[in-house]
Design a protein around this nucleic acid. Structure first.
Lengths: 108, 108
DNA sequence: CCACAATTTAACATTTACATTAAATAAAGT
DNA sequence: ACTTTATTTAATGTAAATGTTAAATTGTGG
């Protein structure tokens, strides 16, 4: 299994989170296209991309003088799977909360 | 919707991640019980719990001189929901990857 | 009220994260 | 070869995170 805290660390920065969302919505993009839209320097974006790559969140591909980045879908599946391993906990907890709310309503 | 990067930030620390997993498996626990098992000082654990609480990941409840902590199930649901909003992206991507693998197999 | 137990806050040191500007690298086009 | 384009690496400063020990807080019980 993959290192979930490391993935979360990569996604904990708002800029990196936005980059990943953009890549999922728009597909593979070069570093330059990602810089546009973030009020931040090119080296800063490059570092963020390097962090994402280091955590296995994105892939890097070279095409001419561009570096194209894309989200590794396995990472999203890993996060989803992690929530699922605790699904019994949170689904039953939420049901108890809902039941407690209904109780409250009936009392008043 | 909730602040996913903030939740990820809270869960990016290995100690905090382990605390949250323990709380989900064992249920509500006092700070002291959480300290045991982590080779770290009580104030450090207290700070980690405060960070988790600040991000809305855990709830704090007072009972006698103990502070009891538990995971807020909504947070797990929020993370799960976030992956689901991008499900089309990652499921189709994974299918393409699998198809490409099958192609490779057939060639050889 | 005093002592104990559980936990947090304060003060401090150290490491890590993130931004910037300037310089380096890589690939193409002229 | 020289210039332009795209991106990264280096050097540096500053802010934030994390750990420690010591002191303060909060609640129980003699």
């Amino acid at each position: 299994m993959s290192d979930i805290p490391k993935i979360f660390s990569a996604l904990s920065d708002p800029t990196r989170f936005a980059i990943v969302e953009r890549l999922m919505n728009e597909g593979e993009l070069p570093a330059g296209a990602l810089q546009a839209g973030f009020d931040i320097s090119a080296p800063a974006i490059s570092r963020h991309l390097s962090v994402l790559n280091g955590a296995g969140v994105v892939n890097r591909r070279v095409n001419r003088q561009q570096r194209l980045y894309s989200v590794r879908p396995e990472i999203m599946q890993d996060i989803c799977s992690w929530t699922m391993t605790h699904r019994e906990f949170w689904e039953s907890s939420l049901m108890r909360l809902e039941a407690a709310l209904v109780e409250e309503m009936n009392k008043k």
